[in-house]
């Protein structure tokens, strides 16, 4: 098991294996996001209350759900960096932050659009779900700034790992804000399997497909930027020189 763990930490090994994954992931992403988009725009039934406005839920739920994955990912990667000093883990943590910031922003933007139509407001400072998500966006910006504020790479990696752990606690707050406190935002929907019921398959199958596609997009973005980082940090290694000479 430890051999496998050590292997995973090798940038060269990761560069090679991720290069083999990328075409499959990209294909699956294009298929799932493409199919889900067409389905959501053309065939998703209107909600009895909100009409066609509810179609934005497909994008909003997918983006919001994915945005919650970043801080746990960064915290686990950060902990591995702190304990085992694995170079690859720190590269993943570093490159996750900007992508996570974009996902948090998109969550706020799509939610704002939805809220402006259904609630009658773009933004409510008093809603804990909205504010905790904004806090996540700011924390992401904080992690990015902290990373570039410290020159020493080991030091910035350690500081960012601690901030990522704080971000993890916030993820729990975001998730349960709608249950712990009363909010304008609705709680998470419980899906039903059979037809003819609330939140039936006609709503969640397409949403699930979009979630899958967006997670793939997240994975691909992260892999691509991490591969860049690997080449940058290992530019003096022989195997990177060979790649450079081949192309």
């Amino acid at each position: 098991m430890w051999v496998w763990f050590a292997k995973l930490g090798s940038p060269k090994w990761f560069y090679e294996i991720s290069g083999r994954w990328l075409p499959w992931m990209s294909g699956a992403m294009v298929l799932s996001i493409g199919f889900a988009t067409v389905w959501a725009l053309l065939f998703l039934p209107p909600d009895y209350q909100q009409g066609y406005t509810s179609r934005i839920l497909v994008v909003h739920v997918a983006v919001a759900g994915t945005s919650l994955a970043f801080f746990p990912l960064m915290a686990v990667a950060g902990a591995i960096t702190l304990v085992w000093k694995m170079k690859l883990a720190d590269m993943v943590a570093k490159n996750a932050a900007p992508i996570g910031a974009w996902f948090s922003f998109l969550t706020l933007a799509t939610g704002s659009l939805w809220g402006s139509v259904t609630w009658g407001t773009w933004w409510e400072w008093s809603d804990s779900r909205l504010v905790s998500m904004l806090f996540q966006f700011f924390l992401m910006i904080g992690v990015i700034s902290l990373r570039s504020a410290l020159d020493d790479n080991d030091q910035s990696a350690r500081a960012c790992a601690l901030l990522a752990i704080l971000g993890c606690i916030n993820v729990v707050v975001i998730k349960y804000s709608v249950e712990w406190w009363n909010t304008l935002h609705q709680p998470a929907s419980a899906v039903t399997i059979g037809g003819g019921d609330v939140n039936g398959p006609e709503f969640w199958v397409v949403t699930l497909l979009m979630i899958l596609g967006v997670y793939l997009f997240m994975g691909i973005s992260l892999i691509l930027s991490t591969r860049n980082e690997i080449l940058e940090r290992e530019k003096n290694a022989v195997w990177v020189q060979e790649i450079a000479n081949d192309s």
Binding site: P46, Y48, Q50, L57, T118, W119, Q186, S189, G200, E202
Partner: peptide
Amino acid sequence: KHDENYMS
């Protein structure tokens, strides 16, 4: 407000 139950 709107709830979390979507229906056609």
